[in-house]
């Protein structure tokens, strides 16, 4: 519990974390507003086929903040100080403050999970408000089950970013891969055009918890289970590597 408190304290005292919060709270409603505006005429005319997705698309596409959170939680430990200051990094302090590496990693993952849930709830608030602002009475109903799906999707995404960064020790690769995949071109989505197996990728399966990119290929529950399986496997791999790795290497 102490290690968990320490991790929370670390995250909240890191300025980069506020960037994650700002993006996390603003990106989804912005996407939702754009989507709502694009669909508004069809929705009012009653011919929109995407009414149930409006708003949720913002939560599906606006995960950049949560990715930053997951990556930064780990990469900040490995950020090397300038050479004139001796070139140390925070991980040495962290691991001399908590003697068990597994405990350290679990505490950190726990802190990321808690903040992810909090951030996704805030994002849902801003997104629902933004959708109502644009569509007024025409705004779709936001069912609780799908909102819970969105919270799970955000949290799992943060944990995937977390696990990847433990393996790479630097935030650059996970940040580039996850950011590009979530915003510029959805590589996983393009892959689904090539092979049905791509529906088993974590982001595609996870989106099925509240959107349905696979067109009913997975139920929301199965989608969630598949994404959680990815999170678990990645975390186990990260834990094994982290346990064995020399800090100096």
């Amino acid at each position: 519990m102490r290690a968990f408190n320490a991790e929370l304290s670390k995250l909240f005292s890191l300025p980069g974390m506020w960037l994650a919060f700002v993006i996390g709270i603003l990106a989804p409603p912005l996407l939702a507003i754009l989507d709502s505006l694009a669909e508004k005429e069809d929705i009012i005319a009653g011919v929109s086929t995407r009414l149930s997705e409006v708003g949720f698309t913002g939560l599906g596409g606006g995960v950049q903040g949560i990715i930053i959170l997951g990556v930064l939680a780990v990469s900040s430990e490995y950020l090397t100080e300038s050479s004139e200051s001796g070139g140390g990094n925070q991980i040495t302090t962290s691991l001399t403050a908590v003697s068990s590496r597994l405990q350290f990693l679990l505490a950190k993952a726990g802190a990321v999970t808690v903040i992810s849930v909090l951030l996704s709830i805030l994002a849902i608030g801003t997104t629902v408000a933004a959708t109502h602002l644009i569509l007024g009475d025409y705004a779709p109903a936001f069912e609780a089950s799908r909102l819970i799906g969105a919270v799970c999707y955000w949290t799992f995404t943060a944990l995937l970013a977390f696990g990847m960064t433990v393996l790479t020790k630097s935030g650059i690769i996970p940040l580039a891969v996850l950011m590009i995949n979530s915003s510029v071109v959805t590589i996983s989505f393009l892959l689904t055009k090539v092979t049905k197996l791509a529906f088993y990728l974590p982001d595609m399966a996870g989106l099925d918890m509240f959107l349905s990119p696979s067109g009913g290929f997975h139920t929301p529950f199965t989608g969630g289970v598949i994404m959680f399986a990815w999170v678990t496997v990645l975390f186990l791999a990260a834990a094994i590597v982290f346990h064995r790795r020399d800090v100096a290497s």
């Binding site: 005292s13 140390g88 925070q90 001399t96």
Partner: peptide
């Protein structure tokens, strides 16, 4: 055991 190893052991933004 208290330890002070190479560098500051701290994140520069904190």
């Amino acid at each position: 055991v208290g330890a002070a190893l190479d560098g500051f052991g701290a994140h520069r933004m904190r």
